Amino acid sequence: MTDDDITGRDGVLDRPRTYVFDGATSRRGYPLNTMLMTLRSPAAREEFTADEGGYCDRFGLEPGQRRAVLDRDWTAMLELGGSIFYVYKLAMMDGVSMQGLGGVFTGLGEAEFTAQLRSGGRSDG
């Protein structure tokens, strides 16, 4: 597979349900990712759990980012600049595995996504 196989004429990645985390995405997602990164700390997790909306407000999230966090809209978090590595910190708090997120992002359930991984991954054909 060449780069031409996966990008359109404008050079943008042309893969359904694939999120490119580039410089622009990183800048947009900075407040969201900063907030999510704090969830490494047990004290921060306690504060977040006590007042999720207030905790989000401390980091200046865009309204859509705030809503995505509160609604646990994993896909929207990526679309709004979230890095999967930081989004996963929140998912772990909710008991959502990486395979569970993979199922959400691919439109499969966790079990089906895991089975697909075990059988060698998805076929693009």
Score class of each variant (00 low, 15 high):
residue 25 T to Y: 05
residue 122 R to E: 03
residue 83 S to C: 08
residue 108 L to R: 14
residue 104 V to A: 07
residue 52 E to S: 07
residue 119 S to A: 15
residue 91 A to C: 11
residue 48 F to T: 12
residue 109 G to N: 09
residue 30 Y to E: 15
residue 60 G to E: 07
residue 31 P to I: 13
residue 124 D to N: 12
residue 54 G to S: 00
residue 86 Y to V: 01
residue 97 S to T: 15
residue 88 Y to Q: 14
residue 43 A to H: 02
residue 62 E to W: 08
residue 14 D to V: 01
residue 58 R to C: 08
residue 19 Y to Q: 14
residue 5 D to Q: 12
residue 120 G to E: 01
residue 78 L to E: 03
residue 38 T to V: 01
residue 100 G to Y: 03
residue 94 D to G: 11
residue 92 M to D: 15
residue 95 G to R: 09
residue 108 L to P: 00
residue 22 D to W: 02
residue 67 R to L: 08
residue 96 V to H: 00
residue 18 T to W: 13
residue 22 D to A: 14
residue 107 G to C: 09
residue 14 D to T: 04
residue 24 A to L: 06
residue 74 W to K: 05
residue 102 G to A: 06
residue 41 S to V: 07
residue 62 E to F: 11
residue 39 L to V: 04
residue 93 M to F: 09
residue 72 R to T: 05
residue 41 S to I: 02
residue 116 Q to M: 15
residue 40 R to C: 04
residue 123 S to C: 10
residue 27 R to M: 10
residue 21 F to A: 10
residue 125 G to L: 10
residue 47 E to S: 15
residue 21 F to M: 15
residue 24 A to E: 11
residue 82 G to D: 00
residue 6 I to N: 11
residue 34 T to S: 11
residue 80 L to H: 04
residue 18 T to I: 06
residue 49 T to V: 06
residue 75 T to G: 05
residue 16 P to V: 08
residue 32 L to V: 13
residue 67 R to P: 07
residue 90 L to W: 02
residue 3 D to Y: 03
residue 82 G to K: 02
residue 109 G to L: 10
residue 38 T to F: 01
residue 98 M to Q: 10
residue 56 C to I: 07
residue 115 A to G: 14
residue 1 M to V: 11
residue 7 T to A: 03
residue 72 R to V: 05
residue 33 N to D: 08
residue 34 T to L: 14
residue 25 T to F: 04
residue 90 L to T: 07
residue 35 M to L: 06
residue 53 G to D: 05
residue 86 Y to C: 07
residue 90 L to P: 05
residue 2 T to H: 00
residue 7 T to P: 02
residue 13 L to Y: 10
residue 11 G to A: 06
residue 72 R to C: 07
residue 57 D to G: 07
residue 108 L to K: 14
residue 96 V to P: 06
residue 79 E to S: 02
residue 95 G to N: 00
residue 36 L to T: 06
residue 87 V to E: 00
residue 101 L to W: 04
residue 55 Y to L: 13
residue 29 G to V: 13
residue 35 M to Q: 09
residue 47 E to D: 15
residue 53 G to M: 07
residue 42 P to V: 12
residue 82 G to I: 00
residue 118 R to C: 08
residue 12 V to E: 15
residue 100 G to L: 09
residue 118 R to L: 10
residue 35 M to I: 04
residue 83 S to Y: 08
residue 64 G to F: 01
residue 19 Y to I: 05
residue 43 A to S: 06
residue 121 G to K: 04
residue 73 D to F: 03
residue 65 Q to S: 12
residue 5 D to A: 15
residue 109 G to M: 02
residue 123 S to Y: 03
residue 25 T to C: 13
